[in-house]
Write a protein that binds this DNA or RNA. Structure first.
Length: 675
DNA sequence: GCTCTCCTAAACAGTC
DNA sequence: TGACTGTTTAGGAGAG
């Protein structure tokens, strides 16, 4: 929302600052001073003529509609006929329809939508011409004199409304005649009422405005305006009503020329900066107060000020306010109109909210699903990316998850192109058994994925693509003490994954089964009972056998990830950004990223020379196994995301060569030895 | 077809 | 007694 508004404000602001760069503005900058008197007369006559045409059309429409009361949709020839009103030069009166008139027309709904459109278009064009006409030399005497006094070159700008009708605004308030301001105000009022009524018609289904049929500045007035602007517009309208009522009693429609004090810019649309940065900021908060009814509170009363839009009357007590409310804001045309405008404001806010929600949804969809297939449900990061990846074109598929998730250390390691069977769009919602989970299969830490897709897993009844062992480990490592009771593990499952909020017996049994089965889970007795911890070394021992010894696969993975023979600098930077330490030394660790890259490659290739890993390994800083071998999670409370991957480098590099065939089911080693 | 891994289901025992 | 916890076994299924 802000972006849209900002864009429009910027464009307007730029137009203002540039003094009118559009064609119309530029043409108007060629001062009308130079126009000859004959041209002036012609312009005035033309204006009056057209005004009269509009009036005739209006009154013709009005009379026809009144004759056909109750007929909502006039025949096409009605409109045609209305446009062919004979012109009576004697009736030429330069007067547009006042907001009151317009409001009355709209309230009575005597015109059909089509007639209204015609009328409003003509009114709008008329006002534009009137504004232009006011700059013609015969109206310029004051301007000219004033400019001579102020020695300021007039600058005009153009604000093109949605229908392409330009409005020319004199930027410098010192050069703006009050008459022009009055016209602009009047234009705004009329447009506001137009917009209001047309929106009502649209809502009632009586009028359909096609996108290309922007005969009215509907969108420019509504969709492009931020709520503050709408508020300001509202304020302008209401103020103008008051002023108009006052002026109508004293003059014939021309507003008083009070130049003693520079009038502030009255049109928020045309003065975005003023309304945004300047003196109107204080009004923006008016609609943001909560409606909290209480004995001495009122939604329209706050901080001693009447919060009726545009009022701001100050009262000492609540009773005075109530009196004022009943007197000044009683049910009349004005209050009704104000209420309607407020409805428009609310509706506009709702529209904006809906648009922003839609935008947010699109953004989330875009970020979560890099897929051409539309997904009805949100998809997790790093997982659904594989939906679009097929085995047939593994190398052609870029590492989709990497660019979007540069903060994900797992993403670069996720061999998406190889996981075509791991997780698919269908399997996301599968309730069948968990098959191979990519994080397990490729030794991926799952914590980044879980953290990234936390909301997704918490809300979507989707089976997480991780093994029970990984999840249990994650649950334990996320705990402050790096140990959890069985019940706490249960709770973690149910809290983190909507999927595990049902079929409790099944998955709880599986959890228990995994806890007992895998050596990496160590049961520790304490005073409170038994808790479960993770033996990282044992956990990491389980993984790499599948991927090891397959240089082609590793190469494929690396290629599909876009890293080539060595890890890219981007990946290294990503690792560094995420504070992924490389525990290549047990005590001190100033590991280089190159060593990490080498370690990863070696691990992937399964070509580790375990015999040399302690000393002759070329990778600097690789520590001997004994330094890490008995690190208990409890004793080394590291952040799980920090040591998940790197630990594997160390442990796998220092274990026996036949660990590939090690099974957790082997029970020939006592777990207690680990502790 | 074999092996490995993971999952589900279930039986069983011990504890609270 | 029932629920919970922990262990173990068996079998199915996917994937290499």
């Amino acid at each position: 929302m802000m972006q849209e508004s900002g864009t429009e404000a910027t464009s307007d602001g730029q137009a203002s600052q540039n003094g009118g760069t559009s064609m119309e503005g530029g043409s108007r900058e060629g001062r009308p001073k130079s126009a000859t008197p004959s041209v002036e007369v012609t312009a005035a006559d033309l204006l009056h003529f057209q005004q009269h045409q509009v009036e005739q059309s209006f009154f013709t429409l009005l009379s026809q509609s009144q004759q056909n009361t109750g007929r909502k949709s006039p025949k096409p020839n009605d409109k045609q006929q209305s446009l062919q009103v004979p012109v009576s030069v004697a009736m030429m009166t330069p007067q547009v329809i006042t907001p009151q008139q317009m409001q009355q027309i709209l309230q009575q709904q005597v015109l059909s939508p089509q007639q209204l459109q015609v009328l409003l278009q003509q009114q709008q064009a008329l006002m534009l011409q009137q504004v232009m006409y006011n700059r013609q030399p015969h109206h310029e005497s004051f301007q000219e004199r004033h400019m001579l006094e102020s020695d300021v070159v007039p600058r005009y700008t153009a604000c093109v409304y949605g229908d392409g009708v330009p409005l020319f605004v004199l930027l410098s308030q010192q050069q703006v005649s009050a008459q022009q301001l009055a016209f602009q105000q009047q234009l705004l009022q009329v447009q506001q009422v137009q917009q209001q009524h047309l929106l009502n018609l649209q809502r009632q289904g009586l009028l359909t405005i096609q996108p290309g049929q922007t005969g009215l500045p509907l969108h420019s007035l509504t969709q492009g305006m931020i709520p503050a602007e709408l508020q300001q517009l509202w304020k302008e309208v209401t103020n103008a009503h008051v002023k108009e009522e006052h002026n109508n009693s004293s003059n014939n429609g021309h507003r008083g020329l009070d130049l003693s004090s520079p009038a502030p810019p009255k049109n928020p649309l045309l003065n975005q900066h003023a309304s945004t940065n300047g003196q109107y900021m204080s009004h923006k908060r008016e609609t943001h107060h909560e409606l909290t009814p209480s004995p001495h509170s009122h939604p329209l009363y706050g901080h001693g000020v009447c919060k009726w839009p545009g009022c701001e009357a100050v009262f000492e007590d609540f009773q005075s306010f109530l009196k004022h409310l009943n007197n000044e804001h009683a049910l009349d045309d004005r209050s009704t109109a104000q209420c309607r405008v407020q409805m428009q404001v609310v509706q506009q806010l709702e529209l904006q909210l809906a648009k922003d929600k839609e935008r947010l949804q699109a953004m989330m969809t875009h970020l979560h699903v890099k897929s051409t297939e539309p997904k009805a449900t949100p998809q997790p990061l790093n997982l659904v990316s594989s939906v679009t990846l097929s085995k047939s074109a593994p190398e052609a598929s870029p590492p989709l998850s990497l660019p979007q998730t540069p903060t994900t250390p797992t993403a670069p390691l996720t061999p998406l192109s190889q996981t075509h069977s791991v997780i698919t769009a269908n399997s996301l919602h599968s309730v069948g058994p968990m098959r191979r989970r990519y994080s397990e299969k490729y030794n991926m830490p799952i914590s980044p994925d879980i953290s990234q897709n936390k909301e997704f897993y918490m809300n979507a009844d989707v089976r997480p693509p991780f093994t029970y062992a990984s999840l249990i480990r994650q649950a334990i490592l996320e705990s402050p003490e790096k140990q959890l009771t069985l019940n706490e593990i249960y709770n973690w499952f149910t809290r983190m994954f909507a999927y595990f909020r049902r079929n409790a017996a099944t998955w709880k049994n599986a959890v228990r089964h995994n806890l007992s089965l895998h050596k990496c889970f160590v049961r520790v007795e304490n005073v409170k009972g038994a808790v479960w911890t993770v033996d990282e070394i044992e956990f990491q021992k389980r993984r790499p056998q599948k991927i090891s010894g397959s240089p082609a696969l590793v190469k494929n993975i690396q290629t599909s990830l876009g890293y080539g023979p060595t890890l890219s600098a981007a990946f290294q930077a990503s690792m560094a950004e995420n504070n992924i330490p490389l525990y290549t030394t047990a005590s001190i660790g100033s590991p280089t990223l190159n060593s990490l890259a080498n370690a990863i490659r070696e691990e992937m290739n399964g070509a580790m020379d375990h015999g040399n890993s302690n000393g002759s390994d070329s990778s600097p800083g690789r520590s001997p196994l004994p330094a890490m071998h008995h690190i208990s999670v409890k004793e080394e409370p590291l952040d799980p995301e920090d040591h998940e991957g790197p630990l594997s480098l160390v442990t796998t590099a220092n274990h026996s060569p036949d660990f590939d065939h090690h099974r957790d089911y082997d029970d020939d080693q006592g777990h207690d030895d680990m502790l």
